[in-house]
């Protein structure tokens, strides 16, 4: 399991931001912007919309900062709010994938070779996943969270997370393999 250690600068910035220090809040944003933005970007596949959503999440944080208890709580809070907002946004139909998983074009190259083209194909397959599986995969492989942590973020049972993840990986792997043998 990959563990991100919160360094001391994060704690200082968090405590200062709690006291209303704008520069410290900006520092907090810089520390977490890649995480929030990437969840949104990988989920929505639209850079401008993802950036807008990420800004909204941090604005929401600015208003709710007093309710955040610790830097760890802050990270979990940001993941939870971002994932929920992404799913909500997707449900508004605007950025829901127009094609189903089965209809997605399969990559024509082997996953063994890691290159931008392959990543793009895999990216497209992830994009074709339904909302919950897509977010589970993003949280598992972008944020490297354990199923228990994903369950906490998405507020669904661990068993459900495991089952969703298992099925999503099988579908993705199958598509990739079929693509490799095509």
């Amino acid at each position: 399991m990959f563990v991100r250690v919160q360094d001391n600068s994060g704690l200082v910035a968090f405590e200062k931001a709690l006291l209303g220090d704008e520069a410290a809040f900006a520092e907090l944003v810089r520390q977490h912007q890649a995480m929030v933005f990437s969840i949104a970007l990988h989920f929505l596949r639209n850079r401008a919309v993802a950036e807008e959503l990420a800004q909204d999440v941090f604005l929401h944080l600015f208003r709710k900062l007093k309710e955040i208890e610790s830097p760890t709580h802050l990270t979990n809070w940001l993941r939870r709010v971002t994932s929920h907002r992404c799913i909500d946004q997707s449900r508004q139909q605007k950025y829901r994938p127009r094609v189903g998983l089965e209809a997605a074009r399969e990559p024509s190259i082997s996953p063994k070779h890691s290159d931008p083209m392959l990543q793009s194909m895999l990216d497209r397959l992830i994009q074709a996943l339904p909302e919950k599986p897509r977010m589970v995969v993003i949280l598992r492989y972008q944020e490297e969270l354990e199923p228990g942590e994903i369950a906490e973020v998405m507020q669904i049972p661990v068993g459900t997370v495991k089952s969703i993840l298992h099925r999503a990986l099988a579908v993705l792997r199958g598509k990739m393999e079929r693509g490799a043998h095509a």
Binding site: A26, E27, V29, R30, Q33, A34, M35, F37, S38, L41, H42, A50, E51, A54, Q55, P111, S114, L118, Q119, L122, D123, I126, V137, I138, Y141, Q142, E144, L172
Partner: peptide, 17 residues
């Protein structure tokens, strides 16, 4: 591993904060 690389974190545009 391939999924990890595909879903690696990216930075937003400069001046996001």
């Amino acid at each position: 591993e391939q999924l990890k690389q595909t879903l690696s974190r990216k930075q937003p545009a400069i001046g996001f904060a």
